[in-house]
Structures are given as structure tokens and as C-alpha cells.
């Protein structure tokens, strides 16, 4: 990573073109730092459900930070892929939060988390079938109609594929965008993780994404899980720096014309804010088409 850090200078991260905004996922250990230091970032993103409460310090901090920065709301609990349909109460709380904070982006995941009134705090993959497509199109349409705005749908990190899937993930996402008007939140780390786990070609995945459908980009780190039988899966833990392979895929995405606000995510073993800032500066370097070194 040092090669990137040397090349990317400490630049202002508030370019005039909103597609070139670089942001960071805001987590509570950094509230005070952000308010005191006002880091030169284009925006922040938070997990919507962490602010569903009626009051308290978290909302207070977020309001103060929102006064200074554009904000994106990234949901992890709406469960767009639930066969049971959407949780209306969850949707109502999200709408209240949108009203309160006027986010410039609202996103969710191509996954499911809730069945039989049991919620799993995980983004469980869906089989890519006709039935799933119809259900997702209906649920996305319901969410967008209720919220009165477009949402973005993130490609998941997946650890399993279903025997009965008949569509590729990229075709499935593109068709959903055409059908619902939703956009893709292209998580490039997820592309890399899923590609490794299933033997996909990550470069081909990025090439299959049409730039017009992409409304946001996520970058994050992940970890390796080695099982007793020696098999290995990559796991989307958001617990480390973005790896070189993911930076290379990001570069590829930019080269093929995908331009969207880019976010650095970090959720486990959260480091000092300066580390996130360096990751953001690296992303900004790519966006400004500076020379970059790979590997």
C-alpha cells in the first residue's frame, strides 16, 4: 500500500463534480474526531438502523456532522429479498430518518435477512431465479414508492451459490435496474470476495457492469477464513485496508467509465481516523487520474 500513499498527495477531497466525491463510513468512535478536525472529505455514510432510535447522543452527533457534510444512509436490515415482504415499520423508520437527515444517497443490499418474523444480522445471498427477480422488483418498487426516491442496491459478498440460480449476478442486477429504476451500489471488495469464493472472473464482473447503472462505489478490506480441511474463503469483514487487487479493480472500473461517489468502509477493529483518511486519499488519487502503481 505504501506505493499509493506516496503518490496520492494530501489534497482537498471536495471536488466540484459530485461523482468524484470520496467519503468514509462514519462509526461512533470517530464522532468527536470528525467534529473537532473537520477532515476534508466529500461525505459520510452511516448504517441507517444505527439511528432508528427516538433520541440520544448518536442522533445528536449525526445532526452536527450532517451540518458539515453530505450524508448517505446505508441500510443493512430492510431485507429486500424477504419472501415475506418488507417490514413496514422498518420502512417507516427509514422514511423518518430520510426526512430528518436529507441524505443524498439511500442504499440497501441484494440479499435477505428476515423470515417468519426472525431477523438475522447478516446479508444472506439469494438464488438468482425468475421468482427472486419478481419478488425483488416488487419489494424495491414498494420501497422506492414509499420512500419517494430512488434507492441503490449493493452487490453482496457471498460465500455460497445456489444450484438453482439461472442468472449471473451482473445480469440480475442490470435487469433489476432496468425494471425498477434503482441503481447499483457497486462494492468492489464484494466483487473480489465473491469472485474468489466462487471462481468467478472479477475483471469480467466489473466489465459486465454498465456505468449508467452505478450510483455509488464501496471499497473495503476483508479477511481470509481457512477451514480444517484446508479450504479457504474470503470473508467481508471490513477489518483491514483495501487490498491491492481491489484497488486494481477500482482502477479498472474508473477506466471503463464508472464514476460515482466512492466510500471507504471499515467496521471491525476500527483504526484511528487518519488510517481511513489515507484510504480516502488513495481513492481520490485514482479519481483524479494520477499515476498509480499496482501490487
Amino acid at each position: 500500500m505504501e506505493s499509493y500513499l506516496r503518490i496520492a498527495p494530501l489534497v482537498k477531497l471536495k471536488p466540484s463534480n459530485s461523482h468524484d466525491l470520496v467519503g468514509v463510513g462514519l462509526r461512533h468512535p470517530h464522532y468527536s474526531y470528525v467534529l473537532e478536525n473537520k477532515p476534508p472529505l466529500g461525505w459520510f455514510e452511516v448504517h441507517s438502523e444505527n439511528y432508528f432510535m427516538k433520541g440520544g447522543p448518536a442522533l445528536h452527533f449525526l445532526e452536527r456532522i450532517r451540518e458539515e457534510y453530505p450524508l448517505s444512509l446505508h441500510g443493512i436490515g430492510l431485507s429486500l429479498g424477504s419472501a415475506d415482504g418488507l417490514d413496514k415499520n422498518h420502512l417507516r423508520r427509514l422514511k423518518d430518518l430520510i426526512y430528518r437527515f436529507s441524505p443524498f444517497l439511500v442504499s440497501e443490499h441484494l440479499s435477505w435477512s428476515r423470515v417468519n418474523e426472525t431477523y438475522f444480522p447478516d446479508l444472506i445471498p439469494l438464488p438468482y431465479t425468475e421468482e427472486t427477480f419478481s419478488l425483488l422488483a416488487q419489494n424495491i418498487d414498494e420501497a422506492q414508492t414509499f420512500l419517494g426516491r430512488e434507492i441503490l442496491v449493493e452487490n453482496p459478498s457471498s460465500y455460497l451459490e445456489y444450484r438453482d440460480s439461472i442468472f449471473s449476478e451482473t445480469d440480475f442486477l442490470a435487469s433489476l435496474c432496468r425494471k425498477t429504476g434503482a441503481k447499483i451500489l457497486l462494492d468492489i471488495n464484494n466483487v473480489y470476495v465473491s469472485s474468489f469464493n466462487h471462481g468467478w472472473d472479477a475483471g469480467a464482473y466489473i466489465r459486465a457492469i454498465s456505468p449508467e447503472f452505478v450510483g455509488e462505489i464501496h471499497l473495503a478490506g476483508h479477511s481470509l477464513r481457512t477451514f480444517e480441511d484446508g479450504s479457504v474463503l474470503r470473508v467481508d469483514t471490513h477489518s483491514s485496508c483495501v487490498c491491492d487487487e481491489v484497488w486494481a479493480l477500482y482502477h479498472q472500473a474508473l477506466q471503463q467509465g464508472i464514476r460515482a461517489p466512492t466510500l471507504i468502509e471499515w467496521d471491525e477493529e476500527i483504526p484511528d481516523f487518519e488510517v481511513l483518511m489515507q484510504e480516502a486519499i488513495t481513492a481520490q488519487g485514482f479519481l483524479e487520474k494520477k499515476e498509480v502503481a499496482y501490487g
Binding site: F120, D122, I124, P127, Y159, L160, E161, Y162, R163, D164, S165, N197, H198, G199, R225, F227, D229, S231, V232, L233, V235
Partner: peptide, 18 residues
């Protein structure tokens, strides 16, 4: 596990991540 495509790591290991 019967839903999961066989490809490298076992379905059991893949499911265990979730």
C-alpha cells in the same frame, strides 16, 4: 446444504460463515 452448489469449499463450510 442441498441448495448450495458444490464448488471448492464444502457447503457446510460455506454455510458456517453465515
Amino acid at each position: 446444504e442441498n441448495y448450495i452448489q458444490m464448488n471448492g469449499p464444502s457447503p457446510q463450510n460455506r454455510l458456517s460463515i453465515h
